[in-house]
Design a protein around this nucleic acid. Structure first.
Lengths: 220, 220
DNA sequence: ATCGTGAGTCATCGAATTGTAATATATATT
DNA sequence: AATATATATTACAATTCGATGACTCACGAT
């Protein structure tokens, strides 16, 4: 059974999409804001999430980030604003496709189908660096075969850095990518998390290199 | 230089797309049927092919198949018929995305951009000059295989000079570009950093050439 | 050969950056 | 609601870096 989650604050849009979804043999749940969506994702498994960007309470981008931390599910964005193209495809975010409103439900369904098809592809998502194994999909980190006790932020940070290994990343960049794009935060926050990460990586703490005047780098 | 191939039998469509492409800084070639497209792909390298489906002589699907045998290039399909969605995504064919006519050129360009981004192979962007290897992304410099111990300013300076090699750069220019735009500083500052750079580059110190009365030059 | 100008070098001190720990706030769990 | 856990902020010490100016050296024109 293929299950979709349709997230939009407009009821009629949800209903149209749902109807087409059922025509294609998909089951679907609905949420009318990001927060509801996140709650549903916590409780259920979905094959694809259709996510509006402009929503009250919790917007699509923020919701997407949270959803992806819970489930490795493809996300298709709905947008009324053509200007957002660039931002839409933060691949780390798991945004697989996007559709501009007003859209053709048929086209949306076709893209959903493709997204699901593509996500089925067995990907070996684990990054291995000697005795350090980072499973991005499973969000677990093994240090010499023992599961490391990392906090969510630490895992996010490590995954991002490992996926961009050998690249010096500024604190600002890390705050943007690992935290939120519009994060009002202190640079030193990154330092603190780096410190904890290093501590928790034990013998592999040296993979995280300080790049003076710049930020940090995962060096493999 | 990013190069597109635009394939459509309608001249005005090709022209609109081409115009938007050039607005985005892309170079583009045009073909008006599949056969022409295949010939062009044989002769040139492209970063992305935009391919109409319905064309005389050789249709989009067949052309795509042939193109992919010649070059590993992402293909974006243009279709007038919504019904073809399913067939479109034969991934073996390398169809990365599709757009339904009539389409928004902006959207098409956004999808082109994404397609190119995705297809990019992770390349090492390092500048190599014999035994001197400058990795700008990782902010490391190798001298005969050994990591050189450069300070941030030295790395900035070296990267800037290496990226503008064979150009004489005045101290003022360097202060503007490597330091701040409106830096209020002493010329001697540059000299000192050049000195340290040369020292740290060891056998490759001669890449940094003094241009008397002018400034410095990275000569490769 | 001499002089003037531009370049190289050096030591020093103040400024900027980072690591860490302590503390405060937010979030999740019971 | 209380507790535990996670995250953010702040402060401070330790370290490194960078700018400066005086001095010396090299070049080239006369």
């Amino acid at each position: 059974m293929v299950r979709l989650l349709i997230v939009d604050d407009e009821k009629n849009i949800r209903e149209v999409v749902r109807e087409y979804a059922s025509l294609n043999g998909y089951e679907s749940d609905e949420a009318e804001n990001g927060l509801e969506a996140v709650e549903l994702v916590k409780a259920n498994r979905y094959d694809c999430v259709i996510l509006d960007i402009m929503m009250p309470i919790l917007d699509g981008f923020s919701a997407c980030k949270q959803i992806r931390q819970i489930q490795d599910v493809p996300v298709i964005m709905l947008s009324a604003r053509q200007e957002e193209y660039d931002k839409l495809f933060g691949f780390e975010l798991g945004v697989v496709d996007y559709v501009i409103k007003p859209f053709s439900p048929k086209e949306l369904m076709a893209r959903v189908k493709v997204a699901i098809e593509r996500s089925k592809k067995p990907e070996n998502n684990s990054l291995e660096f000697g005795g350090l194994v980072i499973d991005a999909a499973g969000r677990t980190v093994m240090v010499d075969g023992v599961k490391a006790n990392l906090t969510p932020k630490e895992i996010d940070l490590l995954i991002y850095m490992a996926e961009h290994r050998n690249t010096a990343l500024s604190r600002t960049k890390l705050l943007e990518e690992v935290w939120n794009y519009d994060y009002f935060g202190d640079d030193r926050t990154v330092d603190t998390h780096i410190k904890m990460l290093r501590h928790n990586l034990g013998p592999y703490r040296d993979y995280i290199v300080t790049v003076r005047g710049m930020g940090y780098k995962f060096e493999a």
